[in-house]
Amino acid sequence: MEHMGIEPGRIHFSWVSSAESTKFVQVVNEVTEAVKALGPNNHFITKEAKVA
């Protein structure tokens, strides 16, 4: 995805076991931070059909 121009950091992958609630919270924080830093997604949004 990065290859076609989606910023790295918009897509995240992680591995959290069902017992790791602390890690879960930590990853949520990290992901939110990263996406916040990038700002709103401008690419790849389907625009609403124009109504004539």
């Binding site: 989606i6 897509i11 992958f13 990853v27 996406v35 949004i45």
Partner: peptide, 17 residues
Amino acid sequence: FALAALREGADGVWVSG
């Protein structure tokens, strides 16, 4: 799935196993 999310206006996608 990831593309569909972005298309519908998501700012980020997180996949977690």
